[in-house]
Protein backbone atom coordinates (compact mmCIF):
# COMPACT_ATOMS: atom_id res chain seq x y z
CA UNK A 1 0.00 0.00 0.00
CA UNK A 2 1.06 3.49 -0.71
CA UNK A 3 1.84 5.76 2.14
CA UNK A 4 -0.89 8.28 2.69
CA UNK A 5 -0.10 11.95 2.46
CA UNK A 6 2.42 13.21 4.91
CA UNK A 7 1.15 15.34 7.68
CA UNK A 8 1.48 19.04 7.35
CA UNK A 9 -0.87 20.73 9.78
CA UNK A 10 0.81 20.06 13.06
CA UNK A 11 2.42 23.36 13.59
CA UNK A 12 0.39 24.88 16.30
CA UNK A 13 0.38 28.61 16.45
CA UNK A 14 2.90 29.15 19.23
CA UNK A 15 0.93 32.06 20.67
CA UNK A 16 -2.32 30.22 20.97
CA UNK A 17 -0.72 27.17 22.41
CA UNK A 18 1.04 29.27 24.97
CA UNK A 19 -2.19 30.97 25.89
CA UNK A 20 -3.69 27.56 26.20
CA UNK A 21 -1.16 26.21 28.59
CA UNK A 22 -1.08 29.22 30.85
CA UNK A 23 -4.35 31.11 30.84
CA UNK A 24 -3.64 32.74 34.19
CA UNK A 25 -1.16 35.04 32.57
CA UNK A 26 -3.95 36.92 30.88
CA UNK A 27 -6.18 37.30 33.89
CA UNK A 28 -5.67 40.91 34.82
CA UNK A 29 -9.28 41.15 35.93
CA UNK A 30 -12.06 38.75 36.75
CA UNK A 31 -13.88 39.52 33.55
CA UNK A 32 -10.95 38.84 31.29
CA UNK A 33 -10.15 35.70 33.24
CA UNK A 34 -13.62 34.37 32.53
CA UNK A 35 -13.27 35.45 28.96
CA UNK A 36 -10.04 33.61 28.60
CA UNK A 37 -11.55 30.51 30.15
CA UNK A 38 -14.35 30.55 27.63
CA UNK A 39 -11.82 31.25 24.95
CA UNK A 40 -9.76 28.37 26.14
CA UNK A 41 -12.73 26.06 26.11
CA UNK A 42 -13.62 27.12 22.61
CA UNK A 43 -10.06 26.71 21.61
CA UNK A 44 -9.96 23.20 23.04
CA UNK A 45 -13.12 22.24 21.23
CA UNK A 46 -11.78 23.66 18.03
CA UNK A 47 -8.56 21.80 18.48
CA UNK A 48 -10.39 18.58 19.12
CA UNK A 49 -12.52 19.07 16.04
CA UNK A 50 -9.43 19.78 14.01
CA UNK A 51 -7.83 16.62 15.29
CA UNK A 52 -10.84 14.52 14.44
CA UNK A 53 -10.98 15.97 10.96
CA UNK A 54 -7.30 15.27 10.58
CA UNK A 55 -7.78 11.68 11.72
CA UNK A 56 -10.56 11.11 9.18
CA UNK A 57 -8.45 12.56 6.44
CA UNK A 58 -5.64 10.19 7.37
CA UNK A 59 -7.85 7.14 7.60
CA UNK A 60 -9.83 7.50 4.40
CA UNK A 61 -7.95 6.06 1.46
CA UNK A 62 -8.07 7.42 -2.05
CA UNK A 63 -10.41 5.07 -3.86
CA UNK A 64 -8.56 5.44 -7.15
CA UNK A 65 -5.39 4.12 -5.49
CA UNK A 66 -7.03 0.89 -4.33
CA UNK A 67 -6.50 -2.24 -6.44
CA UNK A 68 -9.63 -4.03 -7.66
CA UNK A 69 -8.47 -7.23 -6.05
CA UNK A 70 -5.76 -6.84 -3.47
CA UNK A 71 -3.20 -9.56 -2.87
CA UNK A 72 -4.47 -11.96 -0.22
CA UNK A 73 -2.75 -12.38 3.11
CA UNK A 74 -1.63 -15.82 1.96
CA UNK A 75 -0.16 -14.49 -1.29
CA UNK A 76 1.45 -11.50 0.43
CA UNK A 77 3.01 -13.30 3.36
CA UNK A 78 3.95 -16.69 1.97
CA UNK A 79 6.07 -18.03 -0.86
CA UNK A 80 4.46 -21.03 -2.51
CA UNK A 81 6.36 -24.17 -3.47
CA UNK A 82 5.02 -27.43 -4.84
CA UNK A 83 5.91 -31.05 -4.94
CA UNK A 84 4.46 -33.20 -7.74
CA UNK A 85 3.96 -36.96 -7.49
CA UNK A 86 5.58 -37.10 -4.05
CA UNK A 87 6.31 -40.81 -3.33
CA UNK A 88 3.33 -41.79 -5.51
CA UNK A 89 1.83 -40.47 -8.75
CA UNK A 90 -0.79 -37.77 -8.29
CA UNK A 91 0.30 -37.00 -4.75
CA UNK A 92 0.81 -33.27 -5.31
CA UNK A 93 1.31 -31.10 -2.22
CA UNK A 94 2.03 -27.46 -1.56
CA UNK A 95 4.48 -25.94 0.90
CA UNK A 96 3.81 -22.31 1.76
CA UNK A 97 6.75 -20.76 3.49
CA UNK A 98 6.29 -17.69 5.66
CA UNK A 99 9.11 -15.14 5.89
CA UNK A 100 9.68 -16.35 9.44
CA UNK A 101 10.59 -19.83 8.16
CA UNK A 102 7.43 -21.72 9.11
CA UNK A 103 5.93 -23.92 6.40
CA UNK A 104 2.23 -24.55 5.89
CA UNK A 105 1.64 -27.93 4.26
CA UNK A 106 -1.44 -28.75 2.20
CA UNK A 107 -2.86 -30.49 -0.85
CA UNK A 108 -2.13 -28.96 -4.26
CA UNK A 109 -5.17 -28.38 -6.52
CA UNK A 110 -3.88 -31.17 -8.77
CA UNK A 111 -3.83 -33.76 -5.96
CA UNK A 112 -5.36 -37.01 -7.08
CA UNK A 113 -7.80 -37.13 -4.13
CA UNK A 114 -9.77 -34.18 -5.52
CA UNK A 115 -10.44 -36.15 -8.73
CA UNK A 116 -12.37 -38.85 -6.87
CA UNK A 117 -16.11 -38.49 -6.90
CA UNK A 118 -17.41 -36.52 -3.92
CA UNK A 119 -13.91 -35.35 -3.04
CA UNK A 120 -12.42 -35.92 0.39
CA UNK A 121 -14.80 -37.31 2.99
CA UNK A 122 -12.59 -37.85 6.03
CA UNK A 123 -9.16 -37.07 7.44
CA UNK A 124 -7.32 -39.34 9.86
CA UNK A 125 -4.29 -38.05 11.76
CA UNK A 126 -3.73 -41.40 13.47
CA UNK A 127 -0.94 -42.62 11.20
CA UNK A 128 2.49 -43.98 11.84
CA UNK A 129 3.54 -44.51 15.43
CA UNK A 130 1.35 -41.83 16.94
CA UNK A 131 -1.74 -39.73 16.47
CA UNK A 132 -0.41 -36.48 14.98
CA UNK A 133 -3.29 -34.49 16.45
CA UNK A 134 -2.69 -35.82 19.95
CA UNK A 135 0.57 -34.04 20.66
CA UNK A 136 0.41 -30.66 22.33
CA UNK A 137 3.41 -28.53 21.49
CA UNK A 138 4.04 -25.91 24.18
CA UNK A 139 6.26 -22.95 24.93
CA UNK A 140 8.43 -20.67 22.91
CA UNK A 141 10.90 -23.49 22.45
CA UNK A 142 8.15 -25.76 21.07
CA UNK A 143 8.53 -28.48 23.63
CA UNK A 144 7.08 -31.87 22.60
CA UNK A 145 7.31 -31.03 18.91
CA UNK A 146 8.10 -34.14 16.91
CA UNK A 147 10.92 -34.04 14.41
CA UNK A 148 9.85 -35.58 11.15
CA UNK A 149 11.54 -36.44 7.89
CA UNK A 150 10.16 -35.17 4.60
CA UNK A 151 8.58 -38.55 3.84
CA UNK A 152 6.96 -39.01 7.27
CA UNK A 153 3.19 -39.40 7.06
CA UNK A 154 1.09 -36.53 8.43
CA UNK A 155 -2.37 -37.94 7.88
CA UNK A 156 -4.52 -40.06 5.67
CA UNK A 157 -7.23 -38.42 3.55
CA UNK A 158 -10.06 -40.64 2.40
CA UNK A 159 -12.43 -40.31 -0.50
CA UNK A 160 -15.34 -42.54 -1.35
CA UNK A 161 -13.02 -44.85 -3.29
CA UNK A 162 -9.60 -44.69 -1.75
CA UNK A 163 -7.28 -43.21 0.83
CA UNK A 164 -4.07 -41.27 0.34
CA UNK A 165 -1.17 -40.57 2.67
CA UNK A 166 -0.20 -36.91 3.07
CA UNK A 167 3.45 -36.37 3.95
CA UNK A 168 5.56 -33.68 5.63
CA UNK A 169 7.42 -32.72 2.41
CA UNK A 170 10.10 -30.90 4.44
CA UNK A 171 12.18 -32.15 7.32
CA UNK A 172 11.36 -30.28 10.52
CA UNK A 173 9.38 -30.00 13.76
CA UNK A 174 5.65 -30.50 13.52
CA UNK A 175 4.09 -27.54 15.34
CA UNK A 176 0.44 -28.25 14.71
CA UNK A 177 -2.00 -30.10 12.51
CA UNK A 178 -5.30 -28.63 11.39
CA UNK A 179 -7.67 -30.40 13.78
CA UNK A 180 -10.70 -28.74 12.25
CA UNK A 181 -10.31 -31.18 9.36
CA UNK A 182 -11.35 -34.08 11.60
CA UNK A 183 -14.83 -32.65 12.01
CA UNK A 184 -14.93 -30.64 8.79
CA UNK A 185 -13.04 -32.62 6.15
CA UNK A 186 -14.98 -30.71 3.45
CA UNK A 187 -12.71 -27.71 4.15
CA UNK A 188 -10.15 -29.58 2.06
CA UNK A 189 -12.49 -29.51 -0.91
CA UNK A 190 -13.75 -25.95 -0.49
CA UNK A 191 -10.62 -24.14 0.61
CA UNK A 192 -7.54 -26.37 0.41
CA UNK A 193 -5.10 -23.46 0.35
CA UNK A 194 -6.57 -21.67 3.40
CA UNK A 195 -8.83 -23.26 6.04
CA UNK A 196 -8.07 -26.66 4.54
CA UNK A 197 -4.35 -26.61 5.28
CA UNK A 198 -2.96 -29.84 6.77
CA UNK A 199 -0.15 -28.87 9.12
CA UNK A 200 2.50 -26.32 10.12
CA UNK A 201 6.13 -27.42 10.14
CA UNK A 202 9.18 -25.56 11.34
CA UNK A 203 12.26 -26.70 9.41
CA UNK A 204 15.77 -25.84 10.49
CA UNK A 205 17.26 -23.24 8.11
CA UNK A 206 19.87 -25.68 6.80
CA UNK A 207 17.28 -28.40 6.23
CA UNK A 208 15.08 -25.93 4.43
CA UNK A 209 17.85 -24.98 2.00
CA UNK A 210 18.38 -28.64 1.17
CA UNK A 211 14.67 -29.36 0.79
CA UNK A 212 14.07 -26.27 -1.33
CA UNK A 213 16.23 -27.62 -4.14
CA UNK A 214 13.77 -30.43 -4.84
CA UNK A 215 10.66 -28.20 -4.80
CA UNK A 216 8.97 -26.50 -7.71
CA UNK A 217 8.15 -22.83 -7.49
CA UNK A 218 4.74 -21.72 -8.61
CA UNK A 219 5.85 -20.90 -12.18
CA UNK A 220 7.48 -24.29 -12.62
CA UNK A 221 4.36 -25.92 -11.23
CA UNK A 222 2.11 -24.12 -13.71
CA UNK A 223 4.38 -25.21 -16.53
CA UNK A 224 4.37 -28.79 -15.33
CA UNK A 225 0.57 -28.78 -15.29
CA UNK A 226 0.46 -27.67 -18.89
CA UNK A 227 2.59 -30.61 -19.91
CA UNK A 228 0.79 -33.90 -20.33
Amino acid sequence: MKELNPISEFKQDPETSHENCDPVLHSSSVVTSQDSKIEEKQHNEEEQEQEEEELRRLLLPKVEDLPDTPPSAVEANFTTFLLRDFMKPGHDQYIRRHANGLCVIGLAPTHVAFKDKGGITSVDFNVGKSDRSGIKVTGKRKKNAQHFESNTALCKVCTGDASYIVRCCVKGSLLEVNERLIKQPELLNTSPEREGYIAIIMPRPADWLKAKASLLDFEQYKKSRAEP
Binding site: N77, N100, T138, G139, I200
Partner: peptide, 13 residues
Protein backbone atom coordinates in the same frame (compact mmCIF):
# COMPACT_ATOMS: atom_id res chain seq x y z
CA UNK B 1 -7.26 -16.80 18.52
CA UNK B 2 -4.44 -19.27 18.00
CA UNK B 3 -1.01 -17.70 18.04
CA UNK B 4 -0.76 -16.22 14.54
CA UNK B 5 1.53 -18.01 12.11
CA UNK B 6 3.47 -14.80 11.60
CA UNK B 7 4.66 -14.84 15.22
CA UNK B 8 4.41 -18.59 15.90
CA UNK B 9 8.14 -19.05 15.41
CA UNK B 10 8.93 -17.01 18.50
CA UNK B 11 5.80 -17.26 20.60
CA UNK B 12 4.21 -20.14 22.41
CA UNK B 13 1.50 -22.03 20.49
Amino acid sequence: QKTPIRVLHRRSP
